[in-house]
């Protein structure tokens, strides 16, 4: 498995911490999935922040703070600085939202913010589209990880553009690639791993499932299955049947 800015992950699942029915269920989902990375955010302190921080620390996982909801470079950069201080990590999941309904990243501002933050010592995990040229620009800006969307955040639609995601894998063979957003089912996560992606970041699919703990387990197993399948060098699909049982030696009975 590739490293993320020099860090080995225990497994390829990065799990968000939002929208769970309760903190206890969040904790169980993490334990059940074995996820090694927790996505977190910053919001105005209303008293709940310190309890949440304590719980996340006790999970013993790596912390990936995000800049969710930021629409400008300045906003994202300021948020990243605040996150680095609060969470004591140079990692930042850089989100720069360009469209309110689809939450599609504003890739132009994303590249600019990635450059500023990299120069400032951050290790940027950019939430991006599946556009190859944007990917190249992000790498030029100093990113060592790319996180293309599978589908819009929270939509649960899976991998909307398999062709583009395949192309991205081929174009950037040595770059850790993470499918971030859009996963709804374990089969989607397995699909991402079968394509050779290095990790999957998901949240809603687990947190909003009827049984988040069980879904967390299902996701972890699907991700492992997909990863093993990719490593096992799967067969190519073909149009016509090819008998798997040997033809030679069949008894002549007609």
């Amino acid at each position: 498995m590739k490293t993320f800015y020099g860090t080995h992950l225990p497994n390829p699942l990065m799990l968000g911490t939002a929208q769970y029915p309760s903190p206890a269920i969040l904790e169980r989902a993490f334990r059940e999935s074995g996820a090694g990375v927790a996505a977190v955010s910053l919001r105005r302190e209303s008293g709940a922040g310190q309890t949440f921080w304590q719980m996340i620390r006790e999970l013993g996982v790596l912390i990936l703070p995000n800049t969710a909801g930021c629409h400008t470079v300045k906003e994202a950069v300021t948020t990243a600085h605040m996150a680095r201080e609060v969470f004591e990590t140079p990692w930042i999941k850089l989100e720069l939202i360009g469209h309110t309904d689809s939450l599609q990243p504003d890739v132009f501002q994303l590249v600019e913010a990635a450059r500023i933050l990299t120069e400032d010592g951050f290790q940027v995990f950019p939430y991006t589209t599946d556009d190859l040229i944007v990917g190249e620009r992000l790498l030029e800006a100093g990113c060592e990880v790319l996180m293309p969307w599978g589908a819009p955040i929270g939509s649960g639609r899976g991998l909307n553009n398999e062709y583009a995601l395949r192309a991205m894998r081929v174009e950037f063979p040595d770059v850790p690639l993470v499918i971030d957003a859009g996963i709804g089912l374990p089969s989607h996560a397995a699909h991402a791993m079968e394509l050779g992606y290095d990790a999957v970041l998901l949240n809603t699919a687990v947190a909003r499932a009827g049984d988040p703990q069980m879904m967390a387990r299902a996701m972890a197993r699907a991700i492992e299955a997909g990863m093993l399948a990719h490593q096992a060098d799967p067969i190519e699909p073909r149009d016509m049947a090819e008998p798997s049982t040997p033809v030679i030696g069949k008894a002549f009975l007609s």
Partner: peptide, 10 residues
């Protein structure tokens, strides 16, 4: 002035 703290996120 903005004062922020850790919060759930995805």
């Amino acid at each position: 002035v903005e004062v922020v703290a850790p919060m759930q996120g995805g």
